[in-house]
């Protein structure tokens, strides 16, 4: 018996519920030991209209069961993305969504306008939650009006799927989730990294040059599952769970908590085979429970 692992996220058919999170695979062209059959899709490294050099080192630090990063959205800008990467994506057998960043509402819209219709671009993940940029990012993610304004600006420029990636650094994620849903988002991604800090006791200063960074890895998983669940209860559109997924059990927790799919990021840095192992582990779990498809997995999603 083969378990049907496919899932449709707001009309986008994915062969697997396991996706590569933004930042985990770069632009997909240098991924070590990639096992495509297990990959539902990939979200590109975050991109701005213009090239960005990123933050000075140190950019990462290990923390208990996780890591802090402050890469600063280093990237080549949209022209290079269209020239160098999108043509490669066009021939791949899994969808690539572009992670979209801007310093203003209009910049988000302009960036999506540039990318809409470019062969290889299957959709957009709107990043209103990056903690590692001075302008924009997190600012748009913790104000429901700003979050809705960005979503509307993007929605007007494309008919492709628009996923909005939410920050955990809010009082009530349901408020932001509903605002973004109302503004036309097709799906939500919950959650981006938590803002954290680590101090170097030799130098008596932060370990990261940006002072703060985004915390990822298993350290945030229970927090992320809770937030993804809260978001899923607040809206009718699909939610993609993100946060410390390392193995199939972790992914299944997000799925049962109400998510349609999961993204895997930090785990792939440590285990290049993580996505394949997670895919195969979910499949084995479903088979063990005599479920024919992922759609038959019981969900815990009481409506308020």
């Amino acid at each position: 018996m083969t378990v049907d692992m496919s899932v449709a996220v707001a009309g986008m058919k994915l062969r697997s519920p396991v996706l590569a999170a933004s930042g985990a695979f770069g632009y997909g062209t240098e991924v070590p030991l990639l096992d495509r059959r297990a990959l539902g899709g990939m979200v590109s490294k975050g991109i701005f209209l213009r090239p960005r050099t990123g933050s000075p080192p140190p950019r990462i630090v290990e923390t208990p069961s996780g890591m802090l990063n402050a890469i600063g959205l280093q990237g080549p800008g949209v022209d290079a993305l269209i020239r160098d990467y999108a043509p490669q994506w066009a021939s791949w057998d899994f969808p690539v969504l572009v992670n979209i960043n801007g310093e203003s509402v209009s910049e988000y819209g302009d960036l999506v306008g540039r990318l809409d219709g470019v062969p290889g671009v299957a959709g957009f993940e709107i990043n209103i939650s990056c903690p590692n940029v001075e302008q924009g990012g997190l600012y748009f993610g913790n104000d429901p009006r700003a979050a809705a304004a960005v979503t509307e600006a993007v929605r007007r420029r494309t008919t492709l799927p628009v996923w909005v990636k939410l920050t955990p650094m809010v009082t009530d994620i349901g408020v932001i989730a509903r605002a973004v849903e109302g503004a036309g988002a097709d799906a939500l991604c919950a959650v981006n990294t938590f803002v954290g800090m680590s101090i170097d006791l030799n130098a008596y200063k932060p370990r990261l040059s940006f002072r703060t960074g985004g915390l990822s890895g298993p350290a945030i998983r229970p927090l992320a599952i809770h937030l993804a669940h809260q978001a899923a209860r607040a809206v009718r559109i699909p939610v993609i769970g993100i946060g410390g997924v390392t193995n199939a059990e972790d992914a299944l927790e997000f799925l049962v908590a109400g998510c349609s799919a999961v993204q895997v990021g930090t785990a792939t840095f440590i285990n290049p085979r993580a996505i394949a192992e997670i895919h195969d582990g979910i499949s084995a779990h479903l088979e063990l429970r005599h479920l024919n498809s992922l759609a038959e997995l019981p969900r815990y999603l009481p409506r308020d």
């Binding site: 930042g23 985990a24 770069g26």
Partner: peptide
Amino acid sequence: CGTGVCLGCA
């Protein structure tokens, strides 16, 4: 990561 994707080792 050590493999070029995370951009941590700038």
